[in-house]
Design a protein around this nucleic acid. Sequence first.
RNA 1: AGCCCCAUGGUGUAAUGGUAGCACAGCUGGUUUUGAUCCAGUCAGUCCAAGUUCAAAUCUUGGUGGGGCUGCCA
Length: 589
Amino acid sequence: MPEATETRHFIQQMIDADIERGQWGQPGDRSVITTRFPPEPNGFLHIGHAKSILLNYGIAQEYGGRFILRFDDTNPAKEEQAFVDSIKHDVEWLGAAWDGEVRFASDYFEQMYDWAVELIKKGLAYVDEQPVDDIRAQRGNLKEPGKPSPDRDRPVEENLDLFERMKNGEFPNGAKVLRAKIDMASPNMNLRDPLMYRIVNAPHHRTGSTWHIYPMYDWAHGLEDSIEGITNSLCTLEFEDHRPLYDWFIEAINKDRGPGGQWGEKIHHPRQTEFSRLAISYTNMSKRYMKQLVDEHHVSGWDDPRMITIAGFRRRGYTARSLQMMVEDVGITKFNALVDMGRVENMIREDLNERAPRRMAVLDPVKLTITNWGEHGDADRVEMMSVANHPQDESYGQREIPFGKELYIEREDFMEDPPKKFFRLGPGREVRLRAGYWVTCTDFTKDSDGNITEIFCTYDPDTKGGNNPPPDAEGHVRKVKGTLHWVHAPSALDAEVRQFDRLYMAERPGKKTGNHLDDINPDSLQVLTGAKVEPSLASTTGDEPAWEDAIRRFQFERQGYFCIDQDSTPQKLVFNRTVTLKDSWVKQQ
RNA sequence: AGCCCCAUGGUGUAAUGGUAGCACAGCUGGUUUUGAUCCAGUCAGUCCAAGUUCAAAUCUUGGUGGGGCUGCCA
């Protein structure tokens, strides 16, 4: 039934109040709301970024405002065009459509430079020529105030000259910096005369060799937001202490601006609000850790299905919708929460249960031969069985699957000496083969290691389609507890199935020893090369939904959800297990 | 140690001075040609202490616990 009252998180409530008050323009005008996602193009996006992207995009959508994608490319040493492309793809895949062209911080370098000059002229910034270690030592620490730099009171004209020469590339890396003149004794370290520019003589992926100085993040970020008219700068908790600095920079620029002012109009002052970043148990969101996993080949790449990158989730078979649902589920707060990985898995189960067509696949096959198949017709005959593609959704229709004398069933569905609660096959036991027939085990063979090599059954021709047999003379209907999946041996297709488990065994990887590699799960990847799948998987069939990313996903009945991997070819099918089905039998054992 | 932020069932959240609710997980039962899904029921919470108030999860103060801040990274 319909939703109860929709609850609004603290950021929405704040924006509501701002709009009502006319914080950004006419009271009541919702369309002024502008948000942004500002990644640095130095790596792949992860699931934590998805929260930020979807929050910012969702706000813009909700208010009828704008959502901007801006690359924060202020450090030429670490950034690459290739990452720009992967990030755009991931944002798009998530369903967040940005307004107009993609923006780049580097497009604003000239404007930022002019403002820096303005601050120098206002006596609010100075060039510091000290070595980096001296600057660091003077900054003090958490309990001791800093000391002013000997360069702090350098005359304006000299600062202007030096800064221009920095820009022109007259000095080597690290020779000089531009600093804001704020308060070396501030209890907030960010306010102890923070650096605004450093010299970096390196080519930039977009501006080439135009610049020899590059703005520091703290100087640049708020200005980028201001230039783009961002109303709400949403960021994670660790930037809380930086907010006073961002405010200071904007106010410093706005000093003596406005009507009658000598510097022009005041610039826009965005409102920053912090929320907690996403943390998921058994994972780590650190870009550094992820890079190490890739570089040291603990995984196959940034898009390894075990990675929590957006690309990894995508390749694993997660849908954008499941990620959207997850972000919605965890909500927006300032509390440092640790989301259980199980919640994330539940989201993809929920989505795929609804949307994935059903198929049958035997991952670890053992042969099952029906010994009386020839007694009720041609022993070589193949009967086509009709089965629903989705038990809860008739619109998915039915498909025909072959059934015959020789089948494969799952090895774990047979026990030589099964306990009472084992509702599957064992000597003398009868089970239903889904949409096939009921079969009773009459015999089996083993190899010298004790492995089951073949199972022999008789089938009941009165149970075609898996249906109950007719009642006996007294009106009793024979019942069966278990239903097994199977494939027809002669027509089954070979497939490789990659099964993934969590990459880390610890809830918080690296927490105990300080090294996340100590918590790596050695068995996080299991490749099954001998799987047998039903022939309909060979090519796309009409019942498959039009997945927005064209990745084909299925439920393999009684197993889990699987998608076709990018390594798959018509000659060699490769499936990735996205997630298992919930399994109360495993728990019971 | 200084400054900043946070604290509600197992987990994630709601309640904005007036009945502590929802979801997931768990457990019990029902349906079921997937031990899935679905349905019903059930367990379980305001970090501690003092104060303000007719009334406190909510406001105040103090504690406790957790997170963040000492890059020429973002």
